[in-house]
Design a protein around this nucleic acid. Structure first.
Lengths: 227, 227
DNA sequence: TTTATATTGACCATTATGGTCTAACGGCAG
DNA sequence: CTGCCGTTAGACCATAATGGTCAATATAAA
């Protein structure tokens, strides 16, 4: 007897699972794919990490690729609703924009990290090769995001002796490096989200950092320079 | 320098090969290990990339691990003789040091890239786990290198309104990001080593970059510093 | 030719992969 | 209790790739 091929995966039923189990599966898969990219990722590892039988993955998703595409949809949806929605900058001050962006990220750190890592990996490793369907959508979203941050900047705020576009680039480099440093500290367990005091210290650290950038790249606030 | 390890691997004989074939093997192995780390690296891929029978690798080196350790020794030796030897800074000016460091790297770009990538990968991926023998030596070398760059800095050169250690960190971040950008341009084939004009442009680009950093982080200097 | 060294790629045991499938579990209806 | 059925786990399978071996050569020297 031949069976139907298409009706194999109980995709919808997945959402009826206990949310905690759903989350375990999703998180494990996000991590695995983010770390290794589509091809090198192992469904065995995902099942193990999620503490779930491997059969379950294929029961719900049908195949590795379909699981991957489910995550694409999930992260894109996440980025749109939880991230891009807060993304309306009224100021032309680049530093202020990036500062606010970092704040948004940080506030949702716990839930944000994994989808963001997956999204980033999708872009860097060639995730789009395996799922062209989502490649364009992910790119569009990325572009929209970049546009929101980089368009309509007020270059007159920067000090006059350095090219404005260069200044923007430098500031971005510094922010990214700063973020990396924080992540490293976080991964080494030097502070945790639950520790109020340590978290507050992180924020003042961030404030001095932003202050430094302002001192470095901007015109002096009180005394206007005549060029 | 070379001692007898076992009757099995004709380790010494490797150096008697045509240099061009040696180089093919070494380069292919450096690339493979640098890209994938020890475990994920494939001897098959190395042999193929070097256009050499797989048996040859094991004939000369005995095992994957011994090949790996040969490369460790090779790169460490390379770093010592071709790199660290030029590494005596008499100035306490951090920017000047990093600038010179970049110059050294760039001048030996062709021969430098592969060993450097291997060395970096050895540190980032856990190469030391597989070859503890060389882990300590590599770390020592790395430490020596960092010490040479970071010890005895003259913080009084920096502008007064930003912490000196922070300034050093920011400058390092910017240099690294700049390097990454250049590498990306290079890998995208936007310029080649043989193209004199493009290369010269790269150097003036680098000069403006250094100039920017000086403007950003240093006290206003009316007198030129020359070395 | 004989001898010694180089060199290859088919071959082997092992491991890991994505995917399948059987057997069992647990709640529920009758 | 007995069937039923959506779930679930993990043994299982064909396949591919791994590090490593080895008999068969090619090369060159004596």
């Amino acid at each position: 007897m031949n069976q139907e091929w298409s009706g194999a995966s109980h995709f919808d039923a997945f959402h009826a699972l206990e949310p905690e189990k759903q989350k375990r599966v999703i998180d494990a898969a996000l991590v695995e794919f983010a770390e290794k990219g589509f091809k090198r990722a192992s469904t065995n590892a995902i099942a193990e990490k999620a503490q779930v039988g491997k059969g379950m993955l294929f029961y719900y998703f049908g195949s590795k690729l379909e699981l991957f595409e489910f995550l694409c949809e999930y992260t894109i949806e996440f980025a749109k609703t939880r991230y891009l929605s807060e993304f309306r900058f009224e100021t032309g001050d680049f530093l202020e924009r990036y500062r606010k962006l970092t704040e948004i990220k940080r506030r949702a750190l716990a839930e944000y990290t994994l989808p963001a890592a997956f999204f980033e990996s999708f872009y860097k490793e060639g995730g789009g090769e395996y799922s062209p369907k989502y490649a364009s959508e992910a790119n569009a979203l990325r572009a929209q995001l970049l546009d929101e941050v980089y368009s309509g900047l007020d270059y007159s705020l920067f000090r006059g002796d350095i090219d404005g576009r260069a200044a923007v680039k430098y500031i971005k480099w510094l922010f990214d490096a700063y973020q990396r440093e924080v992540n490293e500290r976080y991964n080494r367990g030097e502070f945790s989200i639950s520790d109020e005091a340590a978290l507050a210290e992180e924020w003042t650290r961030f404030d001095t950092f932003c202050g430094d950038l302002r001192k470095l790249f901007y015109k002096e606030a009180d005394s206007d320079v005549s060029n």
